[in-house]
Design a protein around this nucleic acid. Structure first.
Lengths: 208, 208, 208, 208
DNA sequence: GATGAATGAGCTTTCATTCAT
DNA sequence: GATGAATGAAAGCTCATTCAT
């Protein structure tokens, strides 16, 4: 298996449909990251993917669908990877640290995808208000699960609500990532943030 | 003085310029909240404001400008109010609690404005990437200032970075608010969240 | 009587109506010359004239009417002046030379008006196709009259049609003027043209 | 080869690119002639051409571009035809007569095109002031060339400036044509004018 | 499946003109 | 008469999507 340089590339491999599906998906990430969702032109995605405009509509319902599929496929892979890595840790504290690290690493690993997640997804009304982002809930639930585990193990305080904690941590990570991207990815910022966030949140939920 | 039902209304009152400026601003909030920025039609804002299409362009440079002015004027007022209230508290811990409360209360107080802040602002590329949201930084700095105060008073650990803490707390509040709005404003959710967040973050930064 | 710097100024003096009528007319010439008829904005004419937008509509029916009035009033004065000067000459040959000289001098004397005559008048469909430019015919008839006089005096060939000659001479003068204006009013060009045109046309119609 | 009813039709045939390009060009001539450049609506040109509005913008940059292309393509063909015909004459006097005839015939041959040339071209500021009408200069130079030839042959006086003569003759032809068009194309007028103009201008420049 | 020329609905903005003051 | 804020019709152009080849 040839090594992939980014997540969308890896993900699309699983769908055996066609080479073109993957190319359009990758082109979508690039163009959405470069221009933003609303300023991205379908024909630019087509050109970038090396296909005709019409071909896009063989593989995707419409422009929104490209964005949604990028999100869904990428997140499915991310979640799978997360779960694999987390399962190697037994300690809930270590798991929280690892989750924070992996989330922030992801932004660095595939910057175009990071930008799409942070900035562009929110531009699609259909996405925000109509589309049920099941995978997004799955992602948050990874956090909730770690919390519950830690509560069971007596490491975290039982009165913390997993549903609120997962959003709080995710929101913090999201905001930190957004700032980092909009501020041109300042060196060292994410590493520093990682430790601070782990420190604050772990003490915030620690028992005793 | 008649009591105002929302922030934009209050704000625009200060500018005595014209009744129409305020009406357009209020109409903008309503229509942006209802349709989203990109699907909002200028002529719908005009109708809602009870003015002609062209009148909008006497008071605003363009559609983006309406959004930006809503943000600027509202946030200026919010920050002023925040600072007034916070100055009545002497204890940094109480200030953090108050900040969290006021942020969440704001979402309930003016739901359309909340929706615009949460969902629509991020849809304007001009806003996110080109326009320098000075007021947004001012808002975050209110948090940073509280932290520094608490650190000086020996209440909070000195190794916490104000710049990271302010984003973490804001991100958490933002995510909670967004969820609440997208999930149709479930009763009691914000009150519950308020206590949990205060609990987590205050313990997270507490000294000793 | 204060000395006037241009034709429109002089003309409008005769209409005793109001100072504002004249100011709008002068402003119209300036703005039409600067921007062209279609790119001229009524509110720019108003500003230039130092009156309110609405005031324009007290003195003129509409934007087209300003152009037409500029044309009519200026041309009436020009024709009056022409006739006075021509009446001082007894020789039809001298009259042709004088006509050519005066037409070209006019372009130099009031450049803005010249530009409006040459370039902008033709941009108003209403002007070209609907409005009957009586004064324009009067102007051409000055030429026809000179020709007839010369024919009677036996100086010019009787078979030359006054109606065609007047258009031919006017057309030649018009084209020369247009070129001179579009080519940034090259020094000496009009003087040179004057002699050549007189030479060609006078020999062209000379008897024997 | 089917005979073409007008110049634009003929011209566009050479570009085999697409049927639609030619249809839009022809529709442009018709609509510009009917409504004038500024009152012509792009969607009317589209309807007349039997294409969708957007199709226009596949073949032309914008509305101005349609006018410019009409001018350029037509004039190129006209000049080519002129040169061919003129080369069949050896006598400079005959060439002047032929030029005059051909110019006026052109107005009758394709009346819509004539109207666009006479009336509408001057309405585009872009055209008059920004766009360099190279072809127009080429057209005038055909006249200048004939004059020089005649001067060399000792038929025309050497002191006549070709640059002024070409504008004088063109201006006369132009004015005559404009009058004829605005006056509803009076029968016989052009034929009469042709002879008078040839008479005046040839005597005007004749040697001895 | 793939193409890409063609479509045409849709929208922001301008600006001549009006009219209440 | 004079004002100038307000009007609102009008139009060029874009671009997601379709469909004949």
């Amino acid at each position: 298996m040839r090594s992939k340089h980014n997540l969308v590339g890896s993900l699309a491999d699983e769908s055996q449909a066609s080479d073109k599906y993957r190319r359009i998906l990758e082109a979508g990430v690039k163009v959405f990251a470069r221009k933003g969702f609303h300023n991205a032109r379908v024909n630019e995605i087509a050109r970038e993917a090396g296909v005709a405009d019409g071909t896009i509509y063989i593989y995707f319902k419409n422009k929104d669908d490209i964005l949604i599929k990028i999100f869904e496929e990428s997140l499915a892979l991310i979640i799978a990877r997360l779960k694999t890595e987390l399962s190697r840790q037994t300690d809930a504290v270590a798991k929280v640290k690892l989750f924070i690290k992996m989330h922030l690493d992801l932004m660095k690993e595939d910057q175009a995808l990071g930008e799409v997640f942070q900035v562009e997804l929110r531009q699609s009304n259909k996405f925000m208000k109509e589309y049920l982002p099941q995978r997004y809930y799955d992602y948050l639930d990874v956090i909730a699960e770690i919390l519950r585990e830690g509560q069971k193990a007596g490491l975290f305080r039982p009165e913390i609500s997993p549903d609120i904690f997962k959003r709080a941590l995710f929101g913090a990570l999201d905001e930190i990532s957004l700032f980092w991207i909009l501020r041109n990815r300042e060196q060292g910022y994410l590493e520093n943030s990682r430790e601070q966030l782990a420190d604050i949140f772990l003490r915030g939920i620690a028992r005793g």
